[in-house]
Design a protein around this nucleic acid. Structure first.
Lengths: 341, 341
DNA sequence: GTGAAAGCGCTAACAC
DNA sequence: GTGTTAGCGCTTTCAC
């Protein structure tokens, strides 16, 4: 078992000083050709690689970026991570992934731990709990320390920093508009509770589309679900009590669950009822019938977030300017909706 | 913008030496109560936190573990990561996630980069390419340097190290046995190419179950798919050319794709044809009809892998003993198969 | 052309 | 009780 070799070992072995070795390996003109070759040959032979930690300490940068997300078993977040990874690796950065598990405390602990030198910057999507409490002290703290932070998707307006979001209002608007255009009259909305920023925004988009088309908003057709585990029964109840001919859901699971309930009740999709979801994951693609949905382009969100962060990291820009990038959504029409006339 | 504070700052401010500060913060008996209190108060006031990088350099351990997986947009891998995260965080470790993107080169580069001090150990599932080439030099290299490595799911028998796998043969066996027990006679297998270890093992399980029940193996009912993107047409072709009454697929996507094709052809599931998949992701749960599948318990795999790694890391065991843990699979029966008689 | 020395932030053995 | 020193692995300035 040969342990990692250091400059010191090489220096001793070759009977030169550490600094000579360091320079020789960098092929510095300062060192005689002979010494350089000798050192380089030796280094190659023993597969010398500089120690990242020592470099980090010396340079005061780690070349690591942290991504903090509430959940990883989730199509949207994994595509975002893919995008971040891609850009980060190209820029020579590693990605440290931390799961906050939708817990405010874990989010805080993870950030504090990582902020102490382990990483150069953060990319984060907030937990529901954080959004509900509106307690952003830990985020402000990190920013105050001069560490760049980029927020995506579930962001906090109160915090001034770079952000990447999708136009949730517009995405929902497009979805509902499409339903109206295909002749649907009474459109139910299955959303999350309001403190989840994206749920709220998508609800706004829904209302906007209805208002614009002169359709009265019937609050009893709006379902706000807190616990995704129990969505089945809550949606079931909506079907029992209300009458509607289309459903717009703010995520795949709500959409597919609703669609299955409709089918169980003998309704034909999209003939009797149309469905539109949000997020283009496997579920939407492979559902029967396949689901019309609003595509979030997670990969692009990840790429943009990573680019913004790395720009701040590499450029040493002194003037603090922050921007919010908006990634446009796309509506993919599939079998769960009728054709536009 | 207040930069991070160091021991040095505190020492200067309080006019004591750095080591006094260090000891005082650790509440060492060596230091007078008065000084301790003074230092601790100051440290708290300025929110002093030791620099992780300096600690890493000093202690020669980073408290980071790297997870290298081929793909993250994949239910199985994300559940494994969740399991790893859970155990790692509890043990005070951070998780660095790297995607090899099914590329041998990326796998090698990632490992080399991280092995130079950034992390204390690896958890890895190999890329298809690595399994095909059987080139494990980079893995052996890491092990030779004395860095612990745990492989999971897609492992290499040639490498001696800790491993966590599922019993793929048995999982497939159970699936096919179940199909036979419910009266299926001609069972098609939709698998991956053989060099993917899990595909090969599941194929073995399929054959075992058939042989054991005295059913002749019809090679023409075995489909080995290389490119998941094109699975639709290949499976379609199987349906055109062959006759069978059940399908066992080695993943969710193949299973659901086959089921959709069957339905398009007017077959009733499970009345005319039964389906069993592998991996219990959203797809299996929300497919119509829902899919009977072999559950891999990714969370447990992740937890076990992390436990094995951390044990090696924390315990400084000198005697090198390696083990392979096998996580049992479970067959979940849903609507895509008939009831057992 | 080569090497000594300082320093990144921290710890710990050893002096005083 | 407190401070000095050395060292983790590396870079870089400045002597020689």
């Amino acid at each position: 078992m040969k342990k990692k070799i250091t400059l010191k070992h090489i220096a001793k072995e070759l009977d030169v000083s550490i600094s000579t070795v360091s320079k020789a390996i960098k092929d510095s003109e300062e060192i005689s050709l002979e010494t350089r070759q000798k050192v380089q040959a030796f280094a190659k032979l023993y597969n010398y690689k500089p120690n990242n930690i020592a470099l980090s300490l010396k340079n005061r940068k780690t070349k690591n970026i942290a991504v903090i997300i509430p959940e990883i078993v989730h199509h949207f977040f994994t595509t975002v991570i893919s995008g971040i990874e891609k850009v980060a690796n190209k820029g020579g950065y590693n990605v440290i992934v931390c799961l906050s598990d939708e817990s405010f405390d874990k989010e805080v602990i993870n950030m504090e731990m990582l902020a102490n030198g382990s990483i150069d910057g953060f990319i984060i999507s907030l937990t529901k709990e954080t959004q509900q409490r509106r307690d952003f002290y830990h985020l402000q703290e990190v920013i105050n320390q001069g560490m760049p932070l980029v927020m995506f998707d579930r962001v906090a307006d109160e915090i001034v920093c770079d952000k990447v979001v999708i136009d949730d209002v517009d995405g929902a608007y497009k979805a509902v508009k499409y339903l109206l255009d295909t002749g649907c009259k009474r459109i139910a909305l299955i959303s999350t509770v309001d403190y989840v920023s994206v749920g709220k925004l998508r609800t706004e988009g829904y209302m906007l589309a209805l208002k614009e088309s002169g359709v009265d908003i019937d609050d009893s057709l709006i379902l706000k679900i807190e616990d995704i585990e129990k969505c089945d029964e809550v949606i079931q109840q909506l079907f029992e009590e209300k009458d509607f001919d289309a459903v717009f859901a703010v995520n795949e699971i709500f959409a597919v669950t609703a669609m299955k309930i409709a089918q169980r009740k003998g309704l034909k999709v999209p003939h009797d009822m149309s469905f539109v979801g949000f997020t283009d994951g496997l579920l939407s693609r492979y559902a029967t019938p396949s689901l019309t949905t609003v595509v979030q382009h997670g990969l692009e969100i990840g790429e943009r977030a990573a680019k913004m962060l790395i720009k701040k990291l590499d450029e040493e820009v002194e003037e603090e300017t922050y921007s919010t990038e908006i990634v446009q959504t796309t509506l993919i029409t599939r079998e769960s909706t009728k054709n536009k006339r």
